[in-house]
């Protein structure tokens, strides 16, 4: 097996808006890829084409040697592909009508056909690992954003996916809750699971990423090791983006 995730020539438009203009990406097993880019660069859309929440118009997606052609795909192929991936959402998207424990169990019971008692046992274990042992029987609406997001991570982890997709996992959180979620994600990264993370947290990217990808205007502008991209980017567009995000005042002056 060469690559865990392989994207070839991904194109995606919403109406007249051409969001992704031919993205290629190969990700090896165990890599933690952080995708950076200004809003509207297509990074979230790219992530969503991997599990077909947004089906790309052109190109192909492979996960763990299972390839789906974006132009012609069957429902069962899409489901198969989704079962090889898991996603952590910006707005957590926990099932509102289920407790935290049930949220984590849901995929195991309905998709992996676990026995309920077995599913409950492993779910409790994983919730303990993300620090939610005491919150198992709470409903999502009763938890803080940080707790909800950690439960979201547990829900993704339990399915033992080939790759976990993180879509701006800390963007909706109050500043004081960002740390606990990033720590949880770091712990997940250390387990050696393949991850693709869309984020604005540069410090986090520096610490955790094995590779950083910078996107703008629907294409990959530059990619490489975090110390290369984040410290000494070659492309002017990357430099500009990093300047703006690390020094918001400079950005204001530039736009003013």
């Amino acid at each position: 097996m060469a690559n865990m995730v392989e994207l070839k020539n991904i194109h995606k438009s919403f109406g007249d808006n051409h969001i992704l203009k031919g993205v290629d990406m190969s990700i090896k097993k165990g890599e933690v890829v952080v995708i950076l880019g200004p809003s509207g660069s297509g990074k979230t859309t790219l992530l969503r084409t991997i599990n077909f929440l947004d089906a790309a118009d052109e190109g192909s997606v492979s996960v763990h040697d299972f390839t789906v052609d974006c132009k012609k795909h069957s429902k069962s192929q899409v489901i198969e592909l989704r079962r090889k991936t898991a996603m952590v959402f910006q707005n957590y998207n926990l099932f509102q009508n289920k407790t935290i424990l049930e949220n984590v169990m849901e995929g195991l019971v309905t998709v992996k056909k676990f026995k309920k008692s077995d599913a409950e046992k492993v779910s409790r274990e994983i919730l303990a690992k993300v620090g939610l042992a005491e919150r198992c029987d709470f409903y999502p609406s009763q938890l803080s954003g940080g707790q909800q997001q950690r439960a979201g991570i547990a829900r993704a982890l339990i399915l033992d996916p080939d790759v976990i997709l993180f879509d701006e996992p800390t963007s909706a959180l109050d500043p004081e809750l960002v740390g606990e979620v990033l720590n949880t994600i770091k712990a997940v990264a250390q387990t050696g699971i393949t991850m693709i993370v869309v984020t604005h947290e540069i410090a986090f990217a520096k610490e955790v990423a094995s590779r950083v990808v910078f996107m703008e205007g629907g294409v990959v502008v530059e990619e490489g090791k975090p110390e290369e991209i984040l410290v000494a980017p070659k492309e002017p567009r990357t430099q500009q983006f990093l300047r703006r995000i690390t020094n918001p005042n400079a950005a204001e002056e530039a736009t003013a």
Partner: peptide
Amino acid sequence: EGQMEACYSVGMTKSQALMRI
């Protein structure tokens, strides 16, 4: 809408998502 997406993300079919969530 995020609820449906979450169902899909864990690999549920549309009818499972409808019935359960």
